[in-house]
Simulated assay, not measured.
Amino acid sequence: MIDRLLGALPLAYPDAVVVVGTAALGFVAGALGPFVVLRGRAMFGDAMSHATLPGVAIAFLVAGAKEPGTLLAGAAVAALLAALLLIALVRSARIATDAAIGVVLSLSLTLGLVLLTHIASTGDSQQAGLDAYLLGQAAGMVERDIALTLTLGALALTAVVVWFRLLRAASFDPGFSAIIGARPWLVDAASTGLLAVAIVLGVRTVGAILMVALLVAPCVAARQLVTTLAALVPLAGVIGAGAGVAGGVLSGHAELPAGPVIVLLATGAAVLSVVFAPRRGVLARRRRGLAREPGAAAGPPQGVLR
């Protein structure tokens, strides 16, 4: 199936692999992003993303080989440990959330750089390319990466569909989700797991530093255009996929790194949406403000998400 899809594209095989892979990643990250943004966990995700770097390095040191599955498993474990550490610092040590995120993020990045430097100094030829997990290397994608993204992404999105009502309640009213019998720790675990899936899938393509932008930017762009979470999730996915496709094509023609190009395009879409969205954009709000007569009562809020 993947072979036929790649063959149907009017692109060289390596470019087709990058475009399909980044499109799949962009859709998964974009669709999962609203559950990060609406719960105010963007920087939480950033800390988890940075934690994948030492996870990859430690997995390489333990396995002694650059096997993608092992490295991604190490990244997933490290991301989840970072999430647990953040929760412990905030709830048990009573450290402010932003301070806890700063501690975990800086610790993760520093540890990752130290470990990568140590690995590079050993002269092991197997370590070549590990630094790509810092900023991503979409050009190194193969069909197995596409299959992994599609499989894990499908599982994550299926979980979103099955538990959509619960995730929506937790995003807008955590107190209500507790009243209806949903245990807060279970909801937190589910949302953190979904976040970990998106981060682990994207860390090799977009990189540990930029991955959070691919979660946030499509959501910001879509948020200006729709008024329901049920519409926000797929639209953010489509915007993320579009950025992935355009970034994959442009990076191949211009010989630029795909990850940063994809993030720039997604961010550009967010900026355009914030400014030009027909109902919630800056210009639309400005026009309504000028058209409103002095002393007239303000109308209902435009585009309140529900």
Rank of each mutant, 00 (worst) to 15 (best):
A73I: 14
P300T: 11
A100Q: 11
A78M: 09
A128N: 10
A154N: 08
A270P: 10
P34A: 11
L150R: 09
L111R: 02
A16R: 13
L9F: 07
V28K: 02
I146H: 01
A73K: 01
L264K: 01
L201V: 08
A78L: 10
W163N: 00
D124V: 00
A59T: 10
A213N: 00
A42C: 06
R91H: 14
L84H: 06
V160M: 08
V77R: 00
T122L: 10
I58T: 04
R223L: 15
L195D: 01
P34I: 13
A12D: 12
A182M: 05
L105G: 03
A296D: 14
A298G: 10
L5H: 05
A82D: 01
G123W: 06
V220A: 14
A139F: 11
I239D: 09
A284Y: 09
D173R: 04
A159W: 07
L6W: 05
T52C: 12
R91E: 15
L195V: 11
L166Y: 05
V226Q: 08
R287W: 10
D3G: 05
A132T: 12
V160P: 01
A291Q: 12
G202S: 09
A51F: 02
W185H: 06
S251I: 13
A208I: 04
V226T: 14
T228P: 07
V216R: 00
L135D: 01
A93E: 14
G69A: 13
V261D: 03
P184Q: 08
